[in-house]
């Protein structure tokens, strides 16, 4: 049973998508959620406050989700944080790049609440 008190960072440049992910997480019992509108914004917040899980879009201005992942994995203080990419960038090479960069899971848009729950459970268990 995953810990529902964990602090989750949701990163997406589309406010509607952040709201969707937040609503699903709320229904799954997660309420401690913060948002960032791109990778650079997220990295700044993650470095200044502790987070237990990152859910990020891939295609964003300023810093992509993949670059955010690489930055997180390259930082000794952050590299332990489970990282899930939620994205429409579903080319095989994208998934391979994400896997090589150290992603914990990868979910293809559009997705269902059940799919997100299943992936989160796999990451957190």
């Amino acid at each position: 049973m995953p810990d529902h008190n964990i602090r989750i960072m949701v990163v997406d440049d589309f406010s509607t998508m952040r709201r969707i992910v937040k609503n699903i997480l709320k229904q799954l019992g997660y309420t401690n959620i913060e948002e960032a509108e791109d990778g650079a914004d997220a990295l700044s917040k993650i470095k200044s406050e502790p987070f237990d899980f990152i859910i990020s879009d891939w295609n964003m201005p300023n810093m992509t989700g993949l670059d955010l992942l690489k930055n997180v994995r390259a930082d000794d203080g952050l590299k332990h944080i489970p990282f899930m990419l939620v994205t429409a960038e579903a080319k095989k090479e994208n998934i391979v790049d994400a896997a090589k960069a150290g992603v914990n899971n990868y979910i293809v848009k559009p997705f269902t609440a059940e799919a997100l729950r299943e992936k989160m459970d796999k990451c957190l268990n």
């Binding site: 589309f14 509607t16 969707i20 699903i24 229904q27 429409a88 848009k109 609440a113």
Partner: peptide, 19 residues
Amino acid sequence: KEIIMELLTSLSFQDLMGQ
């Protein structure tokens, strides 16, 4: 609640089309 959640997630079309 299931239907409402499905309605909410269906709105991800805005993100996909917006991109």
